[in-house]
């Protein structure tokens, strides 16, 4: 039964990931062909800085996590989910850092497509949980994805609102 449920959950995820990767690959190619000269030095510098912070965070986290498991029994029983949640948090940090430092999107259209992407991805994963057997802890990975998309969506939205007020005079 558990295998059947896992199959029902994993198959659509794998298919969706395949479709998403194909779409992203096509988008990247089109963008590259349309704007081969686009190299924003400031964005690259900020992304490099964020990557450096994330690398340090992941390194510390990976070293400390086994020690935390020794002293906190909850981490032992749900070791993998908590461990992957930490990686998600670091990925979120990278994205949010770049969003607020204006290093994530080429222009406002690109930012709007990012906003839409997170919105629809969040809705897709919520629907996936809904059409399975409801929200429970077995879906922790999908729940993490929903939280991730929701946080990124809210951050981009907040940044758009902040920019509208701050850059009004430019």
């Amino acid at each position: 039964m558990a295998g059947k449920i896992a199959f029902m959950i994993l198959t659509p995820i794998v298919l969706a990931c395949g479709v998403l990767l194909g779409y992203l690959d096509r988008e990247a190619r089109e963008r590259g062909e349309a704007r081969p000269d686009y190299v924003d030095e400031r964005q690259i510098l900020i992304q490099g800085k964020a990557y450096k912070y994330c690398f340090a965070l992941v390194f510390v986290y990976t070293v400390l996590y086994p020690f935390a498991c020794l002293f906190w029994p909850v981490l032992q029983t749900q070791a993998i989910s908590w461990f992957i949640a930490g990686w998600f948090a670091v990925y979120l940090f990278f994205q949010i850092y770049c969003i607020w430092k204006d290093a994530m999107f080429i222009n406002s259209d690109h930012r709007k497509s990012g906003l839409n992407g997170h919105l629809w991805s969040g809705i897709f994963f919520i629907a996936l949980v809904y059409f399975q057997d409801g929200l429970n802890l077995e879906h922790w990975f999908i729940v993490l994805l929903i939280i991730l998309h929701a946080i990124l969506f809210l951050n981009i939205l907040a940044k758009i609102l902040v920019d509208r007020t701050r850059d009004a005079g430019d």
């Binding site: 704007r35 000269d37 190299v39 924003d40 030095e41 400031r42 964005q43 080429i106 222009n107 406002s108």
Partner: peptide
């Protein structure tokens, strides 16, 4: 800012940052 950014191949925010004095561009830019 958007149009200038598009022409020189950077983001609008980079042009904005240069005008505000928040970013020192490279000689190439």
């Amino acid at each position: 800012q958007e149009e200038l950014a598009r022409r020189v191949g950077v983001s609008r925010q980079t042009i904005n940052a240069i005008e505000k004095g928040d970013y020192n561009p490279t000689l190439q830019l």
